[in-house]
């Protein structure tokens, strides 16, 4: 998964240059002290993206777990979150066949997402992450 880091750094620099101000603004806007946040627990869970589907479609993890999406199919995908939670998303180019992307879910809740290339939130290529309280 580290093969794109060089390109990623370039992209990062570009985006930082262009987006420092909006990113800071959005960061402030998204602050919500009422939601519990659990520390990373060192655990990982796997969702495989195959052609036109996430497997499993429903992933259940404990808060603090890092969820890894691994593209085991032949087509590129993206991960678009349901509108209410735009704070996590993955760009198309980062998720070509063989690539993986990951995210640590630290707050319990139900996170619905989909691949916009192959469907919508309800049909085609949807997925759900159910994040539970740590046991």
């Amino acid at each position: 998964m580290s093969e794109n880091v060089g390109g990623v750094v370039t992209v990062l620099a570009t985006i930082l240059g262009a987006l420092v101000l909006p990113a800071v603004l959005v960061g402030v806007l998204l602050t919500d002290a009422d939601l519990p946040v659990f520390a990373p627990n060192g655990q990982t869970a796997l969702v495989q993206a195959v052609d036109n589907a996430f497997a499993p479609v429903d992933a259940e993890i404990e808060a603090g777990t890092e969820l890894v999406w691994l593209n085991r199919g032949r087509n590129g995908h993206n991960i678009i979150p349901e509108d209410r939670d735009p704070a996590w998303t993955f760009e198309d180019v980062a998720f070509a066949p063989g690539d993986e992307v990951s995210y640590v879910f630290q707050t319990p809740g139900t996170y619905r997402y989909y691949c916009s290339i192959h469907g919508t939130l309800t049909a085609g290529m949807p997925g759900v992450v159910v994040v539970t309280d740590p046991s």
Partner: peptide
């Protein structure tokens, strides 16, 4: 690093 990037790209 990648998480930061993907969030920013997001």
């Amino acid at each position: 690093l990648r998480s930061i990037v993907v969030v920013l790209v997001g």
